[in-house]
Amino acid sequence: MSMKFDRPMNWKELPAGCLIDEAATSLRFKTGDWRSMRPIWDAEKCIHCLFCWITCPDTAITVQDGKMTGIDYDYCKGCGICAVICPPKASAIDMVREEK
């Protein structure tokens, strides 16, 4: 049985036990929607040290070929760790308030 996620299921449709009938379903849940602060990355200032990548608790820093390429706002929760860890000389990440 494959579970449907297009609408909330009622209790009679759920598989027995609180199991989810497939694996890695968390990929489908965008957890970035409760962010109140948004990190803004400045590509010009970035020295690609990847401190932000290694410390981000939500794996929201995207990297390609050893270079930082941006922030995945679907999963970034706005904690600001990346902005704090970014070396002061680079200061490539700014935290700004989310627009409503």
């Binding site: 909330p8 299921m9 759920l14 609180c18 199991l19 497939e22 694996a23 379903t25």
Partner: peptide, 24 residues
């Protein structure tokens, strides 16, 4: 057939899971 066991279940599904348990 990998499955997810014991996931977090908040306001949107916990009650349905409990209701099903009571029915069983």
């Amino acid at each position: 057939n990998p499955k997810t066991f014991g996931p977090l279940d908040l306001q949107d599904y916990f009650f349905e899971h409990k209701r099903a348990q009571i029915d069983d």
